[in-house]
Design a protein around this nucleic acid. Sequence first.
DNA 1: ACTAGTTTGTCAGATCCATGTCAGAAAAAT
DNA 2: ATTTTTCTGACATGGATCTGACAAACTAGT
Lengths: 232, 232
Amino acid sequence: MNEKSTILVVEDNLTTSKTLGIFLAAENYDVEFAFNGHDGIQRYLANRHDLILLDLMLPDVDGLQVCQSVRSHSDVPIVILTAKSTEDEIVEGLENGADDYVCKPFGAKELLARIRRCLRQKSGTPGKNQPIRVGEIELELERRLVKFMNEPIKLTKSEFEILSMLMRNPGRVFTRDQLIQTALGPSFDGYDRTIDTHIWSLRKKLGEPRGNPKYILSEPGIGYRLSDQHAH
Amino acid sequence: MNEKSTILVVEDNLTTSKTLGIFLAAENYDVEFAFNGHDGIQRYLANRHDLILLDLMLPDVDGLQVCQSVRSHSDVPIVILTAKSTEDEIVEGLENGADDYVCKPFGAKELLARIRRCLRQKSGTPGKNQPIRVGEIELELERRLVKFMNEPIKLTKSEFEILSMLMRNPGRVFTRDQLIQTALGPSFDGYDRTIDTHIWSLRKKLGEPRGNPKYILSEPGIGYRLSDQHAH
DNA sequence: ACTAGTTTGTCAGATCCATGTCAGAAAAAT
DNA sequence: ATTTTTCTGACATGGATCTGACAAACTAGT
């Protein structure tokens, strides 16, 4: 799974902070709090969160100064969240480097959507193109790319489908019929041991030693599975 | 200083369009208008504006569809500007790739600030007007210009769209349907191997040796991809 | 330990199917 | 009207897939 995004909430009002914390945690963000501007800047510099939620009314420094100060260090997305809702204030916030400006009382869903938008924009691609890794094997679902010992190897369509199915569930045993079903399509109607041939060529391409494969294991009487010994 | 930024306003209401035109012109933007969704997409593809202001209520296509359609071609900033102001509508807009969502009645200064914010963000990010480079191939999205071995080469519209899609995601495999979708438009309804012909002429123009292409690789059973070996 | 029975490993063809290739028709742009 | 671009269809080719046959490994019963 993707790593959690971290969010720094800079807000002096404890009730608001708590509420935000609950919303954000529910969306699987890692949240850290600061209760004044100074603290906010310090914490950001120390931990470099993925996004900052910033209240403008802070006990010590003005929120806009916090904004500028952070901006001088980094392009981290900053979402201003405040009761100051006149047009001039909004304009000022945006001109000072904020990435979005949400007025209290805010709708949770809208705020979350705007946060997602900011994070999406910064991280470039939204998708999960992280490779699955099992031992020396690395598989990128999106790009349909497989590396073994950090070298790209060429798999046929069926080989890729089978390996991908096994790697998405390391350790789980699949029957030949299950592998046929999802790798070769439900319309396949033939010899179920065709799978064995594909497994054979996969093993060859993965340099499995004859007789005692390290990754793709046979389950006599059932089917095949990927060893989960090497999953970390 | 920079050239003027160009803005495409997609809005069916003539009064609103006029008002926006006055505001935007006063801020020294070049403005073009479209009065329905179809026209909007066409004009964007033809002129590649720097930003799109999009009304959701259009006579023909749904605004969100316009949004998605444009998104499949480009990362141009899209600001949705509409009377639909429930939270769910805002969330939906942002999830569909919009960069901001401003509700009518809007404040001119706020809108302009949000537009500036979008433009600032995009121009700040690394590759906007910079060409994408993969090996000897160089592609400028804005100017729709392609160079191979530093020599400009002439591509047809479809060829450009396909190459651009591949180059924006080196290494990623695209199915023929995906390529058709964004290169030839969603209304295309025909033989999917038409793509092969375009790939063939692209390869010819890129001087690919017969039999073992260096850049545009086939993924039998799936589609095509651009080799990422030469990306650096 | 031996054997019969079952299951998987291995691999060489035969077959199948996806892609490469290109010419000409159809459509669109100029 | 002429040129350019797009699309379709046909054929050839080579790689991918499937099958089947045999060898090897394993299992269980005697």
